[in-house]
């Protein structure tokens, strides 16, 4: 797998990759010799800690997902039921939250990526105050997510004193339309706030990608008379493909787990409950541990599928970078 292609990166820098001789020593010599352990000791505290804190809870979730454990009926716990998974896939409310999770993630990631690419291309040019604009662009990402959601809920979307309706009044006068943004367009309201926060993230990664384009080749293209569009389509985009994938996939990982905005802006009302929020609610309000765990397992499986693609992208960047 990954090991087959990525051999120790440090040695590759100057000399060509040496072919690794196959280690034919028996297992106990390879793993239990003193030198091997000395190498492993610095790694172990971190590794053991992460295994205990991340793998064990998930295993427990997996086990609980096959029980009918409900905190309200603590004496009737039984293992070996698929009921929770049946419920996850048949309950229309849950199915809706699965669909909304997908819709939210895909929309926010694609729109932020498109905006991010456009803005990164603009910021990659030389103009007066470029540094200042770049700093301004980063700002939304540095607002604490709950604070950003509160800001949009109360200061931007509020129908009576929010900025959007305020600006509408300023432009159209007393007869201006004054929609109640969160109630009238709940999904768009959440998407808008998230796109505002995540476009800077995409911009930063894509801008770094644009700036890593080999300058001499780009110049050569210009000398050869390649037009702006030609250079963009034939040189920039192929180079940027990886960065687009990386930004898109990392964004997907974060937004599929999105909880703060849904919790703050709508509390899952008006069809905006995504899976993380639904799980939180099943756990908190319904106290149905078995069902909450089954939902958790579904999210994890969905994420693993996406993560596999991300890891592949990262490992190719990883090799290219060294």
């Amino acid at each position: 797998m990954a090991t087959a292609t990525a051999t120790p990166v440090r040695s590759e820098k100057n000399e060509p990759k040496p072919s690794k001789p196959k280690d034919t020593r028996p297992f106990n010599e390879r793993w239990l010799n003193k030198k091997g352990w000395l190498r492993r000791v610095p790694l172990l505290p971190a590794l053991v800690f992460v295994v205990i804190m991340t793998q064990l809870p998930f295993l427990a979730t997996l086990v609980v997902s096959f029980t009918n454990w409900n905190a309200n009926y603590p004496d009737e716990i039984a293992f070996g039921t698929l009921q929770n998974f049946a419920t996850v896939f048949t309950d229309p409310g849950l199915r809706a939250s699965v669909f909304f999770t997908i819709l939210l993630t895909v929309t926010v990631v694609l729109v932020s990526l498109a905006f991010g690419l456009g803005i990164a291309l603009l910021l990659n040019r030389d103009f007066l105050g470029r540094g200042a604009v770049r700093t301004m662009m980063i700002a939304p990402f540095l607002v604490v997510p709950v604070a950003a959601a509160l800001l949009w809920k109360h200061a931007m979307y509020n129908p009576e004193y929010g900025l959007f309706n305020g600006v509408l009044t300023q432009i159209f006068g007393a007869s201006a339309p004054q929609p109640d943004w969160i109630t009238d367009f709940p999904r768009l309201a959440i998407m808008g706030e998230l796109i505002w926060q995540w476009t800077p993230f995409m911009t930063l990664i894509l801008l770094a990608g644009l700036q890593s384009r080999p300058g001499d080749i780009m110049e050569a293209a210009q000398v050869d008379g390649a037009g702006t569009w030609q250079t963009f389509a034939n040189m920039t985009m192929p180079h940027m493909r990886r960065y687009l994938e990386l930004a898109g996939l990392l964004g997907t990982i974060y937004i599929i787990q999105q909880f703060d905005s849904v919790f703050t802006m709508t509390a899952g009302a008006y069809g905006t409950a995504n899976l993380p929020y639904t799980i939180y609610q099943t756990l908190y309000n319904a106290q149905d541990y078995g069902l909450a765990s089954a939902q958790g397992v579904i999210v994890v499986i969905g994420t693993i599928i996406i993560a596999t693609f991300t890891l592949r992208t990262l490992s190719s960047l990883f090799e290219e970078g060294n």
């Binding site: 590794l47 998930f58 990982i253 756990l283 909450a292 994890v300 693993i304």
Partner: peptide
């Protein structure tokens, strides 16, 4: 990649335990 894969494990997956 093991370390990285744990980042992709959503927090909600381990929340209950």
């Amino acid at each position: 990649f093991f370390f990285l894969s744990t980042k992709f494990l959503p927090a909600v997956g381990g929340l209950l335990p």
